[in-house]
Amino acid sequence: MGVVALTLWLAFCVTLILLLIGTPLAWWLSQTCSRAKPLIEALCAMPLILPPTVLGFYLLIAFNPQAPIGKFWISVTGDTLSFSFAGLVIASVIYSLPFMVQPLQSAFETVGKAPLEAAASLRAGRWDSFRSVVLPQSRRGFLTACVLTFAHTIGEFGVVLMVGGNIPGRTKVIAIEIYERVETLDYAGAHHLSFGLLLFSFIVLLALYTLNRKGGYRVG
């Protein structure tokens, strides 16, 4: 698999997994009065401020075949977590978690309790209310969360370098390829990829802001 395809595939897998994990987590955070809430919120936000190398370092240790997680993975799949695509996905899921959870949590909090009470009084159960009221009313939040997660995964460098290494076709992503081109003084190649990423990021954000503005009159 080429560098670009691998990067896109990674970002897609991470976004999908985070959508599945992040939605219930963000929902719980938006509804709970639990005393554990600030603790979980702080843990979820850690990747925002932690240097990627720190996170990558601990993940590298955890993925080690002698460590419990690494050992478990080998016993289940027969493959190691470190220097593998699976390891890259897990690391990216952790690293991009706040980019999914925070927009979703804020979207759910914006919906608030009022429409849920209205739905309950009209005989809609919890899951029904979530599906038919909360989801459609947080469309913008989902769009923002998915786009940010996808784009952020594409742009990551430090964590990938620490846990994924640099194996062509398995773990080599665009950001690392650029670094390598610069190291080998292949500036033309670095330009090529860098400009591609620059353009991609800009187009994604432009599309996001345009869509959000258009959606405004119905959702807001």
């Binding site: 009022a114 429409p115 009470e117 209205a118 739905a119 309950a120 009084s121 009209l122 005989r123 809609a124 159960g125 919890r126 029904d128 209310s129 009221v133 459609p136 009313q137 469309r139 119905r218 959702v219 807001g220």
Partner: peptide, 20 residues
Amino acid sequence: IPPHKRGAGYMFQDARLFSH
């Protein structure tokens, strides 16, 4: 009994129509 099974219709001061 949870609210959605009580059969009690509730009308709010702010109507609470679904905006979507």
